[in-house]
Design a binder for these strands. Sequence first.
RNA 1: GGUCCCGUGGAGCAGCUUGGCUGUGCUCGCCGCCCUGUCAAGGCGGAGGUCGCGGGUUCAAAUCCCGUCGGGACCGCCA
Length: 443
Amino acid sequence: MGDEGRQEPARVLVGQLGSRVGDQVRVCGWVQTLRLQRRMQFVVLRDETGAVQLTNRRELRPGLDQQLDALTIGSAVALTGRVVDAPQVRLGGIEVLVDSVDLVSTAEQPLPIAETSNIDLRLDWRFLDLRAPRQHLTFAVGDLFEQSMRSFLRARRFTELHTPKLMGAASESGAEVFRVDYFGSSAYLAQSPQFYKQMAIAAGFDRVMEVGPVFRAEPSFTSRHSTEFTGLDLEMAWIDSVDDVMRMEEELLAAAILEVRDSLGQEIEEIFGVSLAVPSTPFPRLPLAEAREQLFQAGWQPGERASEDLDGEGERLLSKLVADKFGHQFVFVTDYPVSVRPFYHMRPDGDPTVTSSFDLIWNGLEVTTGAQREHRYDVLVAQAAEKGIPLEPIGHYVNCFRYGCPPHGGLGIGISRLLMKLLDLPSIREASLFFRGPNRLTP
RNA sequence: GGUCCCGUGGAGCAGCUUGGCUGUGCUCGCCGCCCUGUCAAGGCGGAGGUCGCGGGUUCAAAUCCCGUCGGGACCGCCA
């Protein structure tokens, strides 16, 4: 307040200008459109909260019009002026009559991408691409979705932990991990918090969750895979069965989708043309064997590799069958055979050929794998031996079952995939802030 | 890793099958001028490309052939 000279009015977010009619304000953002005429000049400026028209009549303020003429699309600017009602203005019915312009940072012309540019070029210029309202909404939804799940779990006594991403041994299967140099020897990037969240259970945390990066060294060239993505993992102690885990997840997702719909549903409808449907609970459940049976009856012809599992086409077809039969967009597929599940999945009493596990498929895409874990040391060791897993590299993990470990189970969700499904995005690239894939490490 | 597809001014495409004479065209953007308040602004004019790269066939290649690089979709793997 002690500054000499002209005082700048306080910055007002564009989204709040409607309640500031008559006030002197400063608005800051990016130039979206310029319509510079003989007598009138119009600047459309956008910030995170919206867009507004700023207007100048050239004859009013000598010099100001030349400053406005010098603006370019995409430049970062701060303008001051008075907010007025302007019913004729289609953009919100208000405008700002400009008093002064501060061209803070000029954008070169032409811009290297347009809204119509292909995804690869857009990813090269991701910071520019992300300025678009569509991309901005994507990550606003992602943030809300994540926060909503976090608060849901927190209210149910989950403790949020952060487990290491640098590991001395591969966490599950050695083939899929990135090896990095570690002071002359090797470390591995975590492909899952799996072992650590189970160790947290043995450590006395009743319920734990983590939202964090997951690294996969698979060269997967699809629209739904990335080599680094954000996962939500949770683990619960003293469960009675894997059903407890599925119940937690369906309530979790229903609550989070409800919150997103209530807060951002209208914007999502406008920008993505997607009407969010809050799923009813419980979600349909189907043992894998039964799912395969129904798929065969519907004409499914799996590839050779899908002799015991579902392939992508099977997942999509199954979702279609479930939608027709139950009117539901989710389906838990349960009781996966031992052959396609890791050694630490528990096997139910009476049927040693399957596991107490599930996948959750959302509109044709696998978004979760979960299971009850084998917490009995001798059984776990036997199952590892059966799968040919050497115990030495994972001794610290196996040890946590030797000194009292409660029954427990949990799951891992691919958050980027959830976001992709929620907004019906065509590729996980759109749901990743800065995508990482086999062919992309930059920016 | 496998199969298929794409690569043409700044962006998005057409042109390629049936090679042809300086690389023709469309939409958008950019630059300049004009324009009584625009709002997907409008009007007029202009600049901008060794047709991803290398080799081959041919009198002649954006166009046909081979290789290579970059990218995408699907499969497999998974979340």
